[in-house]
Design a protein around this nucleic acid. Structure first.
Length: 103
DNA sequence: AGCGTGACTCCTC
DNA sequence: AGAGGAGCCACGC
């Protein structure tokens, strides 16, 4: 993979590299993907993942340490995180200082 | 070629 | 802390 790849391909790589039990932010993914101000678009990429994707999309939260999804989707992401040991409050809050992934 | 759209972020109160 | 507003930018149409 090189720097000419489409944005979404780079997002795939970055998200795939997030270790189990850790989280990171949309902005961080955007930065590591080489487009530091495209955080919104990261959300767009994850939203359109194919159904059977193995990408750990649930390890991406927003800058304030909260799950950005709502309703049943929020619940789905929360369960996925709880399953790998990340403590998520019922409204989707996560302690970034505790779980944040940095290289 | 625009233009509307967000699973966002930053800045200011 | 947290709400409100403006900026951003890859995508789809």
């Amino acid at each position: 993979m090189n720097q000419q790849d489409h944005f979404y391909q780079r997002v795939y790589q970055v998200v795939a590299a997030i270790p189990r039990g850790c989280v990171t932010t949309y902005g961080e993914v955007a930065m590591l993907a080489g487009s530091p101000r495209a955080a919104r678009q990261v959300g767009g990429v994850l939203k359109r993942l194919p159904e059977g994707s193995k990408l750990p999309w649930h390890r991406v939260v927003n800058r304030s340490g909260k799950i950005s999804l709502t309703g049943p989707d929020l619940h789905r992401q929360r369960r996925a995180l709880l399953a790998e040991g990340v403590d998520v409050s019922e409204d989707g809050r996560i302690s970034l200082s505790r779980y944040r992934w940095h290289i």
